[in-house]
């Protein structure tokens, strides 16, 4: 795939912001009134929406409900997450 390094960089940003939200989601499940955590969650959610949109535009779909079909079907092709696409 072209621009593998840049794709990985963007994928890593999505990974980071998503993990922060995974962690905050569990924390909020048991601390629903924590205003700092609520704010942190909402900030990251906005950032993540933008990153996913950018990734989907450039490299294809991450989310099976959000697939851009202008250039065909990008959902069930490379890169598969368990493979090391960029080095081999």
């Amino acid at each position: 795939m072209n621009g593998c390094g840049k794709r990985e960089e963007l994928a890593e940003k999505i990974c980071e912001v998503s993990f922060a939200m995974d962690e905050l989601r569990l924390f909020l499940d048991t601390h629903p009134g924590d205003s700092e955590a609520l704010e942190a969650f909402s900030e990251r959610m906005e950032k993540r929406i933008g990153l996913i949109e950018e990734y989907t535009d450039k490299y294809g779909s991450i989310d099976g409900y959000f697939v851009k079909t202008a250039y065909g079907w990008s959902w069930n092709g490379a890169p598969m997450p368990w493979k090391r696409e960029c080095e081999s």
């Binding site: 990974c15 993990f19 989310d63 099976g64 368990w82 090391r84």
Partner: peptide, 15 residues
């Protein structure tokens, strides 16, 4: 459930 085509944490094993 939905599936996201990414790992929650990266795995990059060379050997």
């Amino acid at each position: 459930w939905g599936y996201e085509k990414r790992l929650q944490y990266p795995v990059n094993i060379k050997k």
